[in-house]
Design a protein around this nucleic acid. Sequence first.
DNA 1: AGGGAAACCCGAACGC
DNA 2: TGCGTTCGGGTTTCCC
Length: 272
Amino acid sequence: MPELPEVETIARSLQQGGRGQGALPGRVIRSVRLFWERTLAEPGKEEFMKHLPGQRVIEVTRRGKFIVIRLERDWLLIHLRMSGDLRVEAVASKPQPHDRMLILFEDGAGLFFNDTRKFGRVWLLTDPQSILGKLGPEPLDEAFTAREFHTRLAARKRQLKPLLLDQTFLAGLGNIYTDEALFLAHLHPLASSNALSQGQASRLLGSIREVLNEGILHNGASIDWVYRGGDFQNHFHVYQRTGEPCPVCGKPIERILVGQRSSHFCPVCQSV
DNA sequence: AGGGAAACCCGAACGC
DNA sequence: TGCGTTCGGGTTTCCC
């Protein structure tokens, strides 16, 4: 579940060396190995091999669900998608099952990209804005106001659920966090975005921030058997709790399909 | 413009 | 036991 909190956690650990000895900044790339090429590397294997070796890592940050690695000349963007994970080894050992890429550094350290379901992607770019520029605002950015959020919601006429999942509208929310935020805000996933009052928009932004911060606190969620360290899955209010009593009113949680995505909500607390 | 569907993947969890 | 089928997560692309 490569949603914002986990990406945030990994980016932080990569910067601070949290996972083992993983501080990337300062390290110089020696070589790159791709164990899976078909959809992993953009623009392609040849470009990676040609341009990455010799470049020093400057810093590691995050934008939306992307992990952003700034190199001396280029930029590396990593999207973990569903089952992706990053692992840093001070002395790179041999690849493990489902490892898709290894970036080997001159001092022997290695950054492994492991991804069971092969959904993840890595981009090598001279200008990261070609991708990051399309993203909507950061919900955790304090400069992003509830008033601005309300304006953006009112400018569209869409079901709340798909709109919140739209990364160009707001960056970083996935299916879990959207369901949880809508529940906390007492809003129905099918409610129309342009029907929200300023107060409802404010409450929704507050709920989004609460859910994201809670996810970060718990190191993200490990659901669908893909374990990646977090335990936020033990704190869901509605997600994957179909039929269980609503923690607020006791009515069974319902599950519907919205924009092909499963959506969990309380039919009483979240009226349209 | 909004919404639906399919495609990309895999392994768990099911049905028979 | 061993098949086959379904499912779901994020995103892009195509179509109405």
